[in-house]
């Protein structure tokens, strides 16, 4: 698919609102990783992270018709996911018996871990921005980048075989994919703030 006809997120949202299952499938595939990373940031278990993602998608289906600005979907998903995570955490906290003799329970930050927390926050923001930018890329860009960061690393020969593209084109294609990732709003904000 050429650059021009590659549907952007806003177009996918409009198609999904019109009932397109294909567009919906793509939205779910693109944005679920961001939800999972957010849930992990809230230190939710894998089970709870799955619940959060499912609940947010179900909410979106209910409210899809009310969405006024299709381009605002990524922001809506991010804030709804955070809201669901803290709601789940709140319920967890209530279900834990309270012991007044334990001074630092729950979310309270003791001085010795405050430094770690600041470092974590910076890293989480970075992860969120990368995943949000990544979600805006085309299927082919995302497939290539996923293979390039695979652990253990893949050789260019393996990547070329998996994607059915010549080895010689991997370098230039990687360059263009990274450029497009760099150009997405979330990633360009991140890079600018690094300067």
């Amino acid at each position: 698919m050429s650059e021009a006809e590659r549907p952007g997120v806003a177009q996918l949202v409009r198609s999904a609102m019109g009932g397109s299952r294909d567009a919906w499938d793509q939205l779910v595939e693109r944005f679920t990783p961001l939800m999972i990373a957010t849930a992990h940031r809230y230190r939710l278990s894998d089970h709870d992270a799955a619940d959060v993602a499912q609940t947010v998608w179900l909410h979106l289906i209910e409210h899809l018709g009310e969405l006024r600005e299709p381009a605002a979907l990524p922001g809506w998903l991010a804030s709804t996911t955070r809201h669901e995570c803290s709601r789940l955490l709140g319920r967890r906290a209530r279900q834990r018996p309270y012991d007044p003799l334990i001074p630092f329970e729950g979310d309270q930050v003791t001085p010795d871990i405050a430094g770690d927390v600041a470092e974590d926050l910076e890293r989480f923001d970075r992860q969120e921005a990368m995943l949000a930018g990544f979600a805006e890329l085309s299927d082919s860009d995302r497939r290539l980048l996923v293979l390039l960061v695979a652990d253990p690393p893949l050789t260019y020969l393996e990547i070329s075989e998996r994607l059915q593209i010549p080895i010689g084109s991997i370098g230039p294609t990687r360059g263009r994919a990274l450029k497009r990732l760099r150009a997405t709003a979330p990633v360009s904000r991140l890079v600018e703030s690094d300067k």
Partner: peptide, 19 residues
């Protein structure tokens, strides 16, 4: 690429496909 690697690691989930 290294930021993306870290981000995709944070987004890993054993049941990602099922979700």
């Amino acid at each position: 690429l290294s930021d993306l690697r870290d981000a995709l690691l944070a987004a890993q989930h054993p049941q990602a496909e099922l979700i």
